[in-house]
Computed example of a mutant assay.
Amino acid sequence: MQYGMLIFDEPERDTSRKILHIDMDAFYASVEIRENPQLRGKPVVIARHPRESGGRGVVTTASYEARKYGIHSAMPAQKAYELCPHAIFIPGRYDLYRQISRRVREIFRKYTDLIEPLSLDEAYLDVTENKPNIKSATIIAHRIQKDIWEKLRLTCSAGVSYNKFIAKVASDFKKPAGITVIPPEDAHNFLMALPIEKFYGVGTKTVERMHELGINKGEDLYQKSELELIQEFGKMGYSLYRKVRGIDDSPVSPVRDRKSVGKENTFADMLRTEEEVVQQLRILSSEVMEALQKNQKHGKTVVLKVRYEDFETLTRRKTYPHYIKDDSQLFIIAEDLWDEIGSLAKGVRLLGITVTGLDPLLYENIELPLWD
């Protein structure tokens, strides 16, 4: 590409890897159906029933039968009930889901140790070199599907390609229990036809701006220069310029260096008094510090998240000169942030505390007295 006297060479693809993205199908709902076969074929929603929660709460996931009514994750439970009054609402058993997720990863480890979990129900696997020495990544994907079904009676979908981005997009194409394979020679045509909404990481507001610029699918994005995309979308523009060309060299990282540790609680009954808020901030502060100690991390930046009854969400952060040493100190900081952004005019639906900008405890600064 040429702009005036500047010439930009097309970046080159690395097509040497074999990457899988495994995504469990409607995981939480599927586990509940497995545990209670009478639910099979019925619209199952993982959320408290609005009649029990006073219309509060959000959908964690929904069975494919429920999705036919337009129900999806992160939707208010009340809206899901309006769309499908006969849906079966289940609060969710997250300890059970975590237990089954661990068993799924045990199956993955039969094939490779290069596993990067994204959540309880999805992960990347690098099978370029694999334990059974199987040359075909597609065969491995089929075997994983078979193992998960035979051992857990659950289904998953898989995307198979040469990088993480394409594999993740592909895994969503043939749900449930499907496999979509995008080899290097097919990647260009696949990406050209891909709706811009399907480009992983492109949010709602970015999609709106894309449409304003006439970018509706990969082919439109491909026509934009790197300079144009960076000027319009910054760092994301740089990334999208490469992704639409089938380039994503990020490795599958089995151990990710945690950049933050946080805890948040959503309340079935809104918090409406200062005492209730303070109590929850104390609980969250204790849980966050416990998690930090478990991960041998500490940090200086605290983020408070507040969501109100009408779903308005506010965050505020503060960075301190010294590492936060205990839950009492974290609580005081969180309470200060609450005083800045908190309000009891509307009920508090959610509170969250996160400590970010983490460093290993090994590098803790020791303050030495310079004089008495």
Rank of each mutant, 00 (worst) to 15 (best):
D126V: 03
K131C: 09
P132L: 10
T138P: 07
I139H: 10
I140T: 07
A141R: 09
A141G: 10
H142L: 14
I144A: 06
Q145S: 13
Q145L: 12
K146H: 12
D147Y: 07
E150C: 01
T155A: 02
C156A: 14
G159K: 08
Y162F: 08
Y162W: 03
F165C: 03
K168C: 01
V169A: 00
F173N: 00
K174I: 01
A177R: 03
G178N: 02
G178A: 00
T180H: 00
V181I: 08
D186A: 14
A187C: 11
H188N: 14
H188S: 15
N189Q: 15
L191F: 15
P195V: 14
P195K: 15
E197I: 14
K198D: 15
G203E: 12
G203F: 13
T206I: 13
T206N: 10
V207S: 12
E208M: 06
M210A: 04
E212N: 09
E212I: 09
L213N: 05
I215W: 03
N216H: 11
K217M: 14
E219N: 11
L221T: 08
Y222C: 10
S225K: 06
E226N: 11
L227H: 04
L227S: 10
E228D: 10
L229D: 05
Q231I: 03
Q231T: 04
Q231H: 05
E232I: 05
F233P: 04
K235E: 00
G237R: 04
Y238Q: 03
Y238E: 02
S239H: 01
Y241H: 04
R242D: 02
K243R: 12
V244N: 04
I247N: 06
D249K: 04
P251W: 03
V252S: 06
S253W: 05
